[in-house]
Structures are given as C-alpha cells and as structure tokens.
C-alpha cells in the first residue's frame, strides 16, 4: 500500500503494489499481510458508503492451467465513473475484465484465488448465480458481435430472456436503450432490418444498447473501439462519458490517449500484476512507479 498524499483523495483509491512476485502457492492470504488494513472483512456483504465501490478485487489470482495470468490483483472501482485499464498486450487486462462477469469460466482449466466483489457480493462464491451476475454486469466486446437478427430483436434479446413479452413495453425499452446508446436517431426507421447491415461503429453502439437493455449496474468494455475507425471511436468515447452518469464503466484499452480522454481513474497492468492505479491525470503526469512511467512514455509495450 502506497499512500500518495499528492493525489487528491476524491475517489477512494487504494493502491496496492505487489512488491514481490507472487508465490507459486497462489495463496492470497499470506500476501495481504499488513498492507491491506482498510479492506473490509471478507464476510461483509454490504456496499461501502459514500463514494460507493461498485467493483472490487482483493488479492485476486487467476491461472490458465499452470500459467498464472493474474497475480494478486487488488483494485477498487467506484460507482458512476469510468475506469480504464491499460497495459501492453498479454498483461492480463482483458482477463481481469472478464473476471468481473466470470466470462473466464468458459475457458477450460481456469482456476481463481482471492476475491472479486460486485456491490459487496462475492462474485466467485459457490452460491453466486452466474446468469444473474452477467445480467448485472454488461459487456461490450472488442469486435462488434450483433446477433444475425433484426436491430430490434438484438436489443430485445435480453429482455425476452427475462420474460418481457408485452410488445409495448418491449418497444419502449428498446427505444430507451437505443437512445442511451446514441443510436436511436440513426435506426428508428429500420428497426426490422438485419443488424449485420449496420456499419461497424453502429454495430458496436447496438451492442452497447443490447447490453444496456437489461439494466446492468456495470458496463465492461473490452477495447470497444479497437476495430473501429476514428470517427466511430470518438462516438463510442463520447458515449462512455455520457453513460457514466447511470452506470459504472470499466474499459480496457491499449490506447493511452483514449484512456486519458475518457477515464476518471486509470489502472496500469504488467505481466499479470497491477502496477499502479490512480486518478487518470495524475497517473499520466506524475506516475509513481518507474514501470508506469516507462510505459506511458513509450519505452516499451
């Protein structure tokens, strides 16, 4: 734990530095030691007060078979903010993102240790309903992946899963989601057309609308603009800024300018470790870690 008095303590950021490499045992309890006195008791299922912490990991390890992809990551993501995770490719940032909605479960041979919380609830607890978790944690992928259905049916997909059958309500909710995703005006006349006919940027906003329709608390974005042209990218970035009023947004990006433009907080990862997290401007202007500085000044990565 490094307390940095120069950082304005607005969002409660605690930065834990895994100062030594994680032991092969992957036992998170040892490593916590005296470095995490502020961590609430593991059993406490309540959300923190005031600047609410929406997502939290504590000493989180993740293994793909024998390979450790995440090493004792401890991170807190406050509500109604945009938090960016940056780092070179292969550093584990997408893996970390996918830990919050347990998409990593789909990969055979994945093991986890430590703790991940959504609004104080243990994400990896045996009693956790993964399906409900994924409804509460929306996700947007690197490449737009609309279903080969109509625009309307794409957005209505999640609603229908939840049992919404009333046509009027479906239409209203689809419109609301499309408006929030800033796509409504472009597609209002062709909701029945195939989603695959939209441009890449529109498809990505459709995917955002599709995720918003089921009213998630958190929106995970995995390099959401990396497959898009600059104009479409700008629209997605604007959208992220608008959406943070309602949602908590966690975005993975390899583009540091993008992180600087849209995020309130930035976390820098390297080789599975969380090196530094802090207010975005501070992290980019006065990084506390040599590794962070090297990365943002382009010395590697």
């Amino acid at each position: 734990m490094v307390a940095d008095p120069s950082v304005k303590p607005s969002p409660t950021i605690r930065t834990e530095l895994p100062s030594r490499p994680a032991g092969p045992s992957g036992d998170g309890e040892d490593r916590r030691g005296p470095a995490a006195p502020a961590t609430p008791e593991p059993g406490a299922m309540h959300a923190a007060p005031a600047p609410q912490i929406r997502l939290r990991t504590h000493a989180f390890d993740l293994f793909y078979g024998a390979h450790q992809a995440l090493k004792a990551v401890t991170l807190e993501v406050p509500s109604h903010s945009v938090t960016a995770i940056i780092g070179p490719s292969g550093c584990g940032k997408s893996t970390l993102l996918r830990a919050f909605n347990r998409m990593n479960d789909l990969i055979p041979g994945v093991r986890v240790g430590g703790r991940v919380e959504l609004s104080g609830n243990d994400v990896y607890a045996p009693a956790t309903d993964v399906v409900e978790l994924r409804r509460r944690v929306g996700m947007v992928f690197q490449r737009p992946n609309p279903f080969p259905k109509s625009i309307f049916d794409n957005v209505a997909f999640g609603l229908r899963l939840l049992g919404v059958r009333d046509r009027g309500e479906l239409e209203a909710r689809v419109e609301q989601s499309l408006r929030r995703a800033a796509l409504w005006d472009e597609v209002r006349d062709r909701l029945g057309r195939s989603a695959l006919a939209l441009s890449g940027g529109q498809q990505q906003r459709l995917c955002i609308a599709r995720a918003l329709a089921v009213e998630p608390e958190v929106l995970l974005m995995d390099e959401p603009a990396s497959a898009l042209d600059p104009t479409a990218t700008a629209r997605i970035e604007e959208l992220a800024l608008e959406l943070k009023a309602r949602y908590t947004i966690l975005v993975v990006t390899h583009n540091m300018q993008q992180a600087a433009r849209i995020s309130d907080l930035t976390a820098f990862m390297l080789q599975g470790e969380l090196i530094e997290v802090g207010e975005t401007r501070a992290l980019f202007t006065r990084p506390r870690q040599k590794l962070t500085e090297d990365y943002i000044t382009g010395r590697f990565g």
Binding site: M103, E132, R134, F141, R143, N145, L162, R210, A211, V214
Partner: peptide, 15 residues
C-alpha cells in the same frame, strides 16, 4: 459459427 455469438449471449445473462 463465430464464438462471439455465444459470448454475446452469455454476457447478456443467457443460460
């Protein structure tokens, strides 16, 4: 079939 379809559905809370 692209695996992204399955991922998209699951990420929306599909069983």
């Amino acid at each position: 079939m692209p695996g992204s379809l399955r991922e998209a559905a699951l990420a929306l809370g599909a069983t």
